[in-house]
Amino acid sequence: MSACPRKMIKENGAEKSKSFSRCRNLNLDVECGEAVSFVWPASLFPMIQHIRIKDPDDERVGAFTSLKDRELALRHGLFVVEGEWLVLRLLHSSYPVHAVLMTPSRFADPIWQFSAATTIYLAEEQVISRVVGFPFHRGMLALGIRSPLAPPDEFLRSAQMPARLIILPEINDAENLGALFRSGIGLGYTHFILGPSCTDPFSRRALRTSMGAIFQANIMRSQDLHSDIIHLRHEHGFKFHALTAGDNDAENLEGVRPSRRVGLIFGSEANGIAPHLEMLCDNKVTIPMQPGTDSLNVNAAAAIALYHYRIQQGSGSAP
């Protein structure tokens, strides 16, 4: 509905001014506060095949609810996206969309541009709520198709100079991981390397927290981070900096001048960075805190560090 204009109408022989809303997709004025129900005309639906779902136990939409993120990944190579905003970002990304479950009113909106290869399921909101198992008011869900993650050499072909890498050996919390992607992409970092024990970036919570930033990232899943760091140093000229929490031999962030190609390593809040990876780093960096205060959480610390490195590289980097 758009903003409510006022119209002069006759009521019981007298003219009165009343507020009306115009429904965007129907040529229909509705008096504000009036309860109106109608059936969406078939002519409003895009000329693309869609399937009506009336039974929440319909096996055709089972992937939206019965399978966990890990099962979807291993058995079907899929991930789930929830909500209109994230689905829109998925549609504008390079990731193919396997299927969408949405309400008829959302489907009628001309904003959606679906591929003919995407299966569209339409169901009322109460049916979708029963499918997902909780009151669902975001209007739609989508199943995206995972892309194979590239090996180091292929992963770096699109890296621009000065190249910056974000390396996350073992971020186990999905919300922390999503927030790190959101900060990184927002600050111009496009290449991420995840360690073998790092949580899944395509889990529902990580995608939701990232606000879809993960769809813009180049992601490599390393099976041997120690070897890959050595490879990146010798073959591609990277230097590596570890962000630590107050080590005595760590350099204060404000004094750091990064090299032309730098990989920033952020550890988990529980365990930090493993000693064997820290030993490979050219520099350890810390954000100085006031005495008697705890260190920042990994998301806040990373955002500060990423901004500093971007500014320093923009104003001239060390060799």
Rank of each mutant, 00 (worst) to 15 (best):
N252D: 15
D228K: 01
T244M: 05
A245P: 03
F238D: 04
K239M: 11
H236T: 05
L253D: 05
E251I: 14
H234V: 07
N252C: 12
E254S: 12
I230D: 12
D247A: 13
H236V: 05
G237M: 07
D247P: 01
H231D: 02
N252M: 08
H241P: 01
L225W: 02
S227Y: 04
E254N: 11
H231Q: 12
L243G: 04
Q223M: 10
Q223H: 12
F240C: 07
R233Q: 15
F238I: 04
S227C: 06
K239H: 13
G255Y: 11
F240K: 03
T244H: 00
S227P: 00
L243C: 10
E251A: 14
E251V: 15
A245G: 10
Q223C: 09
F238N: 02
G255N: 14
F238M: 06
F238P: 04
H236A: 08
K239V: 14
H226A: 09
Q223T: 11
H236C: 05
A242D: 04
I229L: 15
N252S: 13
E235P: 02
S227I: 00
D228L: 04
H241E: 08
Q223F: 09
L225V: 04
A250K: 00
D247C: 09
R233I: 00
F240S: 06
G255R: 10
H236W: 14
K239D: 12
H234A: 13
H236L: 03
L225M: 05
T244A: 01
L243I: 14
H234W: 09
A242M: 06
N252L: 07
D224G: 07
I230Q: 13
H236N: 09
L225G: 01
F240V: 08
S227A: 15
E235T: 08
F240D: 02
F238R: 06
I230H: 11
D228H: 11
Q223P: 00
F238Q: 03
N252K: 08
G246V: 00
A242Q: 03
L225A: 02
N248V: 10
H241A: 15
L232G: 05
D247R: 10
H241Y: 15
H234T: 11
I229P: 02
H231I: 01
F240W: 07
G255V: 05
A250C: 04
D249Y: 00
H236E: 06
N248Q: 09
T244Y: 00
D247Q: 10
L225C: 02
A250F: 00
D228Q: 10
I230N: 11
